[in-house]
Write a protein that binds this DNA or RNA. Structure first.
Length: 572
RNA sequence: GGGCCUGUAGCUCAAUUGGUUAGAGCAGAGCGCUCAUAACGCUUUGGUUGCGGGUUCAAGUCCUGCCGGGCCUACCA
């Protein structure tokens, strides 16, 4: 039995996420986790909220709440939504956890011990009115290049010129609008990842099967200009993990916190400890997933994320791990995704554009979204959500091909034989052909799922559903029943068994419907169809079942138009 | 500006890494079936692979130049 560690990129805490956030990391990670569990492998699937940083502080301030309270509240909301989407995390942690604080401080101490931390004094913009240092992009002003009056301190969005905040004419705080700004001297810790450039380069080179999107971004950062740059890993903020060297104070760093991108990936590890602690397990329980000296040697570690996260996962975090010189597990496969667009533009949290996760669940249950999003996941390039496409795909695939199959065969059986798997007759060449066809496709499905080829997996699964309808059409039990009821019984028996098989195979995509199918068939047997010939006889003659309610109601034109209108504007 | 990705049927995507006649699903057309959520099955229309050059026995695939879409560019995360 293989052991697979799976992490999804951590959703940021500052609000409810839209569908784009879901499709780019959590949902495919869940698909993979469910599949691997279904195959009988041991899985630890972790995710958490990413809670530190300036945007969290600002969002809390806007909500009029202490930042810790705000984060706790939003964490619970996000956890609830994740549960409703069926995201099967073994633990959904928090980057603000004590476990992460301890580990982050510990790793910083190790990095310092190994000569990989440098203290650098720099000058940053301080806003007296806001009482805080301002990150570059929170300073607005007039672009010295093009005259655009809403240029940000890092870059002018109008002329794309990269800027330094001090370049701006009439700079002001993007938070309060205050012009009472000054440049102050402040000291920060830098991670000297440039010293690890060659190690990282070799490590990336050894990953031949990673998506080109992943490696090309990493390579760019490694080789662009002067190569990999050192990175500041501390900030002048109140909210975050206090800068300490392990348990000890870090002289000169009082009142500062670690940079959110330093502690967020460390939460992947700390989250495993949160999981163990929450279940009263000893440290060895999580260390066997993360410490190669404590049993994690044979673990396969897979990360899922959107493309914007790639540099931190291919460079910064590995630099932290390598630099600690401790035997932490490194990622084996890094699956990255492009973006999902909404009806001709981008989903945007800040602009409130698109469909948000809570709204999505208000109008339809998780399986509809899971199926569409996964079968259209932006794997090779950005993809686009449109209501027409959503309606068409969902109606055709889920309602017509799968749902109607379940409906037609259970109802036919009930009418002709009653609500139990009928006895009599034998499988012939037609049935053998179905078994062969299924075997070929199931093996292909497994291959695509193992390779995390999400779209291809969805296509293959759909083709597997189609086999059921093809079989009924060619076997035509409604005809054979008139002349040879025994033969019809065998045909129905096979078709009813397909429902159980479909439930098992489809569970990673549509877990709710899958559970309802098993429930209707009144079976707990969710064993994977390794041997298809055996699997089509799992439900034996006499086994009682019930006709389920419609698995997937169709989306009507009226609904689609209604939603189209409702979600055409923005949300505040 | 620099780097990377991308452009294939009306739509969403494939194409075993240079190898027969570029394939699926949806949408369209026709036929069949009547168990079923007016569902299902079969057949079928539809392509100058963004455009122009080049390399090769052979190019959707490699090179080059244009055109379009997108991402990243290190202090948002």
């Amino acid at each position: 039995m293989a052991r697979i560690l799976i992490t999804s990129a951590l959703p940021y805490i500052n609000g409810i996420k839209h569908l784009g956030n879901l499709v780019g990391s959590q949902l495919p990670a869940d698909l993979y986790a469910r599949f691997q569990r279904g195959r009988g492998n041991e899985v630890l699937f972790l995710c958490a909220t990413d809670e530190h940083g300036t945007p969290a502080e600002l969002a809390a301030a806007k909500a009029g709440k202490p930042v810790a309270d705000y984060c706790a509240e939003l964490h619970d909301i996000q956890a609830g939504i994740a549960r409703q989407f069926g995201l099967s995390f073994d633990h959904f942690g928090r980057s603000s956890s004590p476990q992460n604080r301890d580990l982050t401080q510990h790793l910083a101490a190790k990095l310092a011990e190994n000569g990989l931390i440098e203290e650098i004094s720099e000058r940053q913009v301080y806003s007296n009115a806001d009482g805080r240092f301002l990150p570059d992009r929170y300073i607005e002003g007039t672009c010295p290049n093009c005259g655009y009056d809403k240029a940000r301190g890092d870059q002018c969005e109008n002329c794309t010129k990269q800027l330094d905040p001090t370049d701006l004419i009439d700079p002001r705080s993007a938070i309060s609008g205050s012009t009472d700004l000054e440049v102050r001297e402040t000291k920060h810790l830098y991670l000297r990842q440039s010293l690890l450039k060659d190690d990282l380069d070799q490590w990336i080179d050894s990953k031949k099967d990673w998506p080109i999107l992943t490696t090309s971004i990493a390579k760019k950062w490694l080789h662009d200009g002067d190569g990999l740059q050192d990175r500041g890993i501390t900030r002048d903020l109140d909210w975050g993990i206090p800068v300490k060297k392990g348990d000890e104070d870090w002289p000169g760093m009082e009142g500062k916190v670690f940079y959110v991108w330093f502690d967020a990936p460390i939460e992947y590890i700390a989250c495993a400890k949160e999981w163990a602690d929450a279940h009263g397990k000893p440290d060895s329980a999580w260390e066997r997933w993360w410490r190669t000296d404590k049993g994690a040697d044979d673990v396969k570690y897979v990360q899922f994320m959107g493309k914007d996260n790639v540099p931190f996962h291919t460079l910064s975090f590995p630099a932290t791990i390598l630099g600690s010189k401790e035997p932490w597990k490194m990622v084996d496969h890094l699956k990255s995704f492009n973006y999902l667009n909404y009806d001709g533009g981008q989903f945007s949290t800040s602009q409130g554009r698109g469909v948000f996760q809570d709204q999505a669940l208000e109008i339809l249950s998780a399986d509809y979204w899971r199926w569409w999003l996964l079968s259209h996941v932006p794997e090779s390039s950005d993809s686009e959500f449109t209501w027409e496409n959503f309606q068409q795909s969902v109606n055709k695939d889920l309602a017509d091909v799968l749902g109607n199959f379940v409906s037609r065969i259970t109802k036919f059986c009930r009418a002709k034989f009653g609500e139990a798997v009928p006895d009599g007759g034998e499988f012939g060449p037609t049935e053998q052909a179905v078994i062969d066809d299924l075997t070929t496709r199931i093996r292909a499905y497994e291959g695509h799922m193992d390779a995390m080829e999400v779209r291809k997996s969805a296509q293959e699964l759909r083709a597997i559903w189609v086999i059921g309808n093809e079989y009924l059409q060619s076997a035509a039990p409604w005809s054979t029943f008139k002349t040879d009821p025994e033969q019809a019984a065998a045909q129905v028996r096979l078709a009813l068994n397909l429902i159980r098989i479909y439930a098992v195979l489809s569970a990673p995509f549509i877990p709710d419907a899958s559970a309802r199918m098993l429930e209707a068939m009144q079976t707990d047997d969710d064993s994977w169809p390794d041997d298809v010939a055996a699997a089509v006889t799992a439900l034996a003659p006499g086994h009682a079942f019930t006709v389920p309610d419609v698995l997937f109601a169709k989306i009507t034109d009226e609904q689609r138009e209604d939603w189209q209108t409702r979600f055409s504007g923005t949300r505040d």
